[in-house]
Amino acid sequence: MSPLQFCLIFSGVLFSVGLAGALARSNAILVLLGIELMLNAANLNFIAFWRYGPASAPATGVIFVIFSIAVTAAETAVGLALVIAIHRHQRSIRLQEATRLKG
């Protein structure tokens, strides 16, 4: 197993853990964190290919990760604001109970 393959497996396992969390848990915050973990796994792949992959422009992988981190920050802010809004309306953040679109 080459280092690149190890890094990719690492990120694949991390992605699956995030996926399991996002699917299994009913708490909205934990679901959001699971998605966060999946995004991190994707970033890991960018760095892995940047480090070991075929030579490309020297900074591409890092720049992708930087943009990805910025987008994730925006995603988390909006996601948590939604969670708080749901909690204000329903007094609960269980996703099963958030069945109404009307606020």
């Binding site: 890094c7 690492f10 970033n43 890991l44 760095i47 892995a48 940047w50 480090r51 992988g61 890092v62 990760v65 930087i66 981190i69």
Partner: peptide, 10 residues
Amino acid sequence: FYLWAGAEFA
């Protein structure tokens, strides 16, 4: 991991 791979800034 990023640090290990040499992507200090990231």
